[in-house]
Design a protein around this nucleic acid. Structure first.
Length: 729
RNA sequence: GCGCGGUUAGCUCAGAUGGUUAGAGCGCAGCAUUGACAUUGCUGAGGUCACAGGUUCGAUUCCUGUAUCGCGCACCA
């Protein structure tokens, strides 16, 4: 036994003791910044860049296991590429997450002080939200460091900071000038609780059991689930080929008895109606239904507002004015019964739209809002998108389609490509204005009838800025290039853009990924990244979604404290495959804590059986063969990582270390190390040290802490394992 | 309704561009060991790879259909 073995190894591996000091060493080395790697000769100056821009976590609280998954996958890729000689940048940041953050703070204020945002006023609310966001930011950054994220903190960004604001306003103005951003009266999703518009993607549908009513409407019987919206219904729609209604002409007018007395109605014949549903006849409410609105636009029909912003009936409802829609429903049915217009009712299940963040019911409303036109042709001056030549006319939809369709952007797993195209096909104009206060204020100013859009406020007196803010995805859509300094033509932008990999969960494929492709295509004529890697949702041991309310959420910090970050990281990777949900349990993580300790003991054994004389000892033929086999293993692991099969790579190195190395080679070594023949003993000593060194190098991206810790105890090593070149055979 | 994915050991999941005995972790049974190991090692039991057709010399793998679970989108007023 070698008496010089470091004291550390006399005890089991203690991750908590080692991890924070190791992270500090990495951070203080400056090597998270690629330029420092070049300066010290660890990366070649002309090395190919590899860039990941971190999907910025929302400053709404703390990181959860989904974030841990994201950070682990990205850190593995980054560490691997850094070791492989790439000019590697991982740029971190956080997202102000407008509506999510504001509604969270509003809820707290409501709970503690019983006040809403209108009681506080814009300025005071923003003060509170900013304070909360700052605190949340600090927590998040700390968590990321605990998880070992090797990102370049000198480049950290925030979606609402000064540089990003400039980028946002620059794009807004350009789109405004191109006529892609327009202001108009269109039907939007109005959140009656949050008092703001939201996008189609922020709606969640909840099943609701209700009644489906049939009423007499002149000579027709119409069906509806929402009698309370029917006051202004002056149009009855039937299918042009419906023989039951063949006797009526399109545009034919008639007077019918209705809720508050007789009204004049007009027959509309359009294919939008489903002949088989109900009676095949319905009245329409263009102000409060997307489909009805479209028919109304098509035939230039009147649109009347029935429901106000708070979900109450307007004066048009006569006796029912001021009532909440749910209360009004039964009373209206009663009225129609009294008038003898009621035919029958049926049980009915349908989905009601609610707002994801506030839970409020969505009432479609026609409102004056800002939109991005996804179908409007414009000229793209400079383009590197394969099928869109520079200077040609295109649309935002076409950019989104082309970037992925040509294979310039590759999605892993590839079956999500279909989902992506399906979404684009159904995409409508994007409503970007929000009636909340936390976020990028719309860079538009008004003075009388004049409208001005620009990066800065216009000169002169009397200009008022638009009260609304932008949808949070407007700014996060620019994240891959706004973080690199755009609109300035920075070195960073030249070197690191387009980025290499965008890694995130499939739940924000549309919210975010598609918007990044849109924004980057528009602003730069380029793709934002060449590979999209989608990880699955992290669920608990029973397969349930982790959530605070279920009490099954795991805190990555607790995991780190109990089992070590390394164990948590590799447990998230092994046995999971891109795009597929995975389950994580403490049992699984515990298993990898044992693995860290196993490795620790391997190191102890190797070091205690190593002597200086073995350094240049020639390998025996048998030992050379062992080394050759290891090289085959390395090559296969390398290929797996290159193919983004991280789960396979992680399992391979785990098996090599535990089964092949510890249980096989170490056991076989015992007699060899004791051999009288020094060529055999020294060769074996050298082999063991070499295999230990190489295997911790390959394991490093997956379990960075324990490997770095062992590396620094090895004889004749200098510098950090983090910057050691990846083994090539 | 349309689309996508899953169905492999008791549990959680990998994997095979079609080819002898289909893998891992956990769990289980037996044996060994106090050691490099807050243990670990060895051995073992356990699988018609959802079901039915088809293609093929050969299918768990490819194709079609069915069942079932999950997800996404669209929604019927």
């Amino acid at each position: 036994m070698n008496p010089d073995i470091p004291e550390k190894f006399l005890k089991p591996y203690n991750p908590v003791e080692e991890e924070s000091s190791i992270y500090k060493q990495w951070e203080e080395s400056g090597y998270f910044t690629p330029e420092n790697m070049i300066k010290d000769g660890l990366t070649k100056p002309d090395a190919e860049p590899f860039t990941i821009i971190l999907p910025p976590p929302n400053v709404t609280g703390v990181l959860h296991m989904g974030h841990a998954m994201m950070l682990t996958v990205e850190d593995i890729l980054i560490r691997y590429k850094r070791m492989s000689g790439f000019r590697t940048l991982w740029l971190p940041g956080t997202d102000h997450a407008a509506i999510a953050t504001q509604s969270k703070v509003e809820k707290e204020i409501q709970k503690k002080e019983g006040k809403n945002r209108f009681d506080l006023g814009r300025e005071e609310l923003l003060k509170r939200v900013n304070a909360y966001a700052q605190q949340s930011h600090d927590t998040i950054v700390n968590q990321m460091k605990v998880m070992g994220a090797s990102c370049d903190w000198t480049r950290e960004a925030f979606t609402l900071d000064e540089a990003r604001t400039k980028a946002v306003r620059t794009v807004f103005k350009k789109m405004y000038d191109d006529g892609i951003i327009y202001r108009g009266h269109r039907i939007v999703n109005w959140d009656t609780k949050g008092q703001t518009t939201i996008s189609d993607d922020e709606i969640v549908y909840e099943e609701e059991k209700t009644k489906f009513y049939y009423f007499k409407y002149g000579p027709f019987v119409i069906g509806t689930a929402r009698p309370e919206t029917k006051f202004g219904d002056k149009y009855v729609v039937v299918h042009p080929e419906d023989e039951r209604y063949a006797q009526y002409e399109h545009g034919q007018k008639m007077t019918v008895e209705w809720i508050n007395g007789p009204i004049e109605t007009t027959v509309i014949k359009d294919g939008m109606i489903d002949k088989e549903f109900g009676t095949g006849a319905m009245t329409i409410t263009p102000w409060h239904s997307v489909a009805d609105f479209e028919v109304a636009q098509k035939y230039n029909l009147d649109k009347e507002q029935i429901i106000d912003k708070y979900g109450k009936l307007l004066p048009i409802a006569g006796d029912f004015a001021g009532m909440k829609i749910k209360d009004a429903r039964e009373k209206i049915v009663e009225r129609l019964k009294e008038k003898g217009l009621f035919v029958k009712e049926e049980d009915y299940v349908h989905n009601i739209a609610t707002a994801e963040r506030t839970g409020g019911v969505i009432e479609p409303q026609v409102m004056l809002q800002w939109f991005i036109d996804v179908n409007k042709p414009f000229t793209l001056e400079h383009s590197t998108i394969d099928t869109i030549p520079s200077g040609s006319e295109t649309t935002l939809k076409e950019i989104m389609r082309a970037s992925v369709g040509t294979g310039q952007i590759n999605i892993i797993p590839d079956y999500f490509t279909k989902t992506y195209f399906h979404w684009i096909d159904n995409l409508r104009d994007w409503c970007i204005s929000r009636q909340i206060w936390y976020g990028h204020r719309i860079p538009v100013w008004y003075k009388g009838d004049e409208i001005y859009s620009g990066v800065d406020a216009p000169e002169g007196e009397g200009w008022e800025q638009d009260e609304d803010t932008l949808d949070t995805w407007f700014s996060s859509g620019m994240w891959t290039f706004s973080t690199l300094g755009w609109p300035e033509q920075t070195e960073d932008l030249k070197i690191y853009h387009p980025t290499s990999v965008l890694e995130t969960g499939p739940d924000i494929l549309f919210f975010w990924i598609a918007r990044m492709i849109l924004m980057t295509g528009y602003a730069l004529g380029d793709i934002p990244f060449s590979t999209i890697y989608l990880h699955g949702l992290v669920r608990d041991a029973k397969g349930q979604k982790m959530s605070k309310s279920l009490g099954n959420a795991m805190d990555p910090l607790d995991i780190a404290a109990k089992y070590g970050t390394d164990a948590g990281r590799i447990a998230l990777i092994v046995g999971t495959t891109p795009g597929t949900d995975s389950k994580i349990s403490e049992e699984k993580i515990k298993g990898y804590k044992l693995f860290a300790n196993k490795l620790w003991n391997v190191a102890r054994f190797v070091l205690s059986n190593n002597t200086a004389a073995s350094i240049d000892a020639p390998y025996t033929e048998a030992d050379q063969a062992v080394l050759n086999e290891w090289n085959v293993t390395v090559a296969s692991i390398t290929k797996d990582i290159d193919d983004y099969k991280l789960h396979v790579a992680a399992e391979s190195i785990y098996h090599f270390i535990w089964d092949t190395f510890a249980n096989g080679i170490l056991e076989d070594s015992k007699p060899l190390l004791a051999s009288e023949d020094m060529t055999i003993a020294l060769s074996r000593q050298r082999l063991l040290l070499a295999l230990l060194t190489e295997s911790i190098t390959v394991l490093h991206p997956f379990m960075p802490f324990v490997t770095e810790c062992i590396w620094q105890q090895l004889p004749a090593t200098e510098g950090l394992l983090m910057t050691r070149p990846w083994p090539t055979s």
